[in-house]
């Protein structure tokens, strides 16, 4: 082992620890290693009791998100060579920790479901399968394509100061995904999603800090999605207020 690096890792084993502690591990340094490689090295070679989530190692599955020196990162995309000194690894902020770096995702999953992230057609407007797919122009695709890149890694929740203050907030990824379907020309379910999105707990809690977009590893720009949803919901609100007899869009 030539050069080494120190990783200071958050540990919490509910059956033996009354509160979380930090444990420091020394790992070999390789310029091509990402933090996840170092954490895997610890698990395989030093301490098999360390628990964390990971899967694809290539920024697609969204399961290896951790706080690295206080910043939410996909550890499969954060290189050791970009850090100096001891690297501090903690579970993503704002979620209840279950064990070591593993936290409960229940709140996020429930919020994701509440925005109905799937294509909804109005009653009776579903095409039979034989008639083929719903066609879309490249321009219609571009409208929402950026938001489809979300991998549900939850880095945006860990970065969001509003969610940290008050976890009733629907949050960046769920709103961006709701917006992804709202802007899809094949979808007709916007009214159904508005119940969650246009509520107090939805877009109106957001104060446009923008950290969600800053940490997003897929350049989804949830902050932008939320601002667009605010404009659209405001137009809805005044339409309903001024033209109560008008048909709801």
């Amino acid at each position: 082992m030539d050069k080494t690096m120190e990783l200071e890792i958050f540990r919490y084993r509910p059956e033996q620890d009354s509160e979380p502690t930090f444990q420091t591990y020394e790992v070999p340094f390789h310029t091509e290693w990402v933090i996840l490689d170092a954490v895997n090295y610890i698990k395989d070679e030093i301490d098999g009791t360390l628990s964390y989530r990971w899967s694809c190692r290539m920024g697609v599955c969204g399961s290896c998100g951790m706080m690295v020196n206080g910043v939410p990162k996909l550890t499969c995309a954060a290189f050791l060579k970009d850090y100096t000194g001891k690297i501090r690894i903690e579970p993503l902020e704002g979620f209840p920790v279950e064990r070591d770096l593993i936290f409960s995702m229940d709140d996020f999953i429930a919020k994701l479901k509440s925005v109905k992230p799937w294509i909804i057609r109005k009653e009776g407007e579903d095409k039979p399968l034989e008639e083929g797919e719903y066609l879309q122009t490249p321009r219609q695709l571009v409208e929402y394509q950026q938001y489809t890149m979300c991998i549900n890694c939850m880095l945006c929740y860990a970065a969001c100061p509003v969610y940290a203050h008050d976890n009733t907030f629907l949050g960046p990824a769920a709103i961006a995904l709701g917006q992804r379907y709202n802007m899809d020309s094949r979808d007709q379910g916007r009214d159904q999603r508005q119940e969650a999105i246009a509520s107090h707990e939805g877009i109106w809690q957001c104060t446009f800090v923008g950290e969600c977009s800053a940490v997003c590893p897929k350049d989804v720009d949830p902050a932008g999605a939320i601002q667009r949803a605010k404009v659209a919901s405001t137009i809805d609100y005044f339409k309903e207020l001024l033209l109560p007899w008008g048909k709801k869009s």
């Binding site: 119940e195 969650a196 246009a198 509520s199 107090h200 707990e201 939805g202 109106w204 605010k230 919901s233 405001t234 609100y237 005044f238």
Partner: peptide, 15 residues
């Protein structure tokens, strides 16, 4: 979830 009246202050804010 309750429908929000936030569009009123928000539209004044953004304008």
């Amino acid at each position: 979830m309750a429908k929000s009246n936030e569009p009123i202050p928000w539209s004044l804010f953004s304008a």
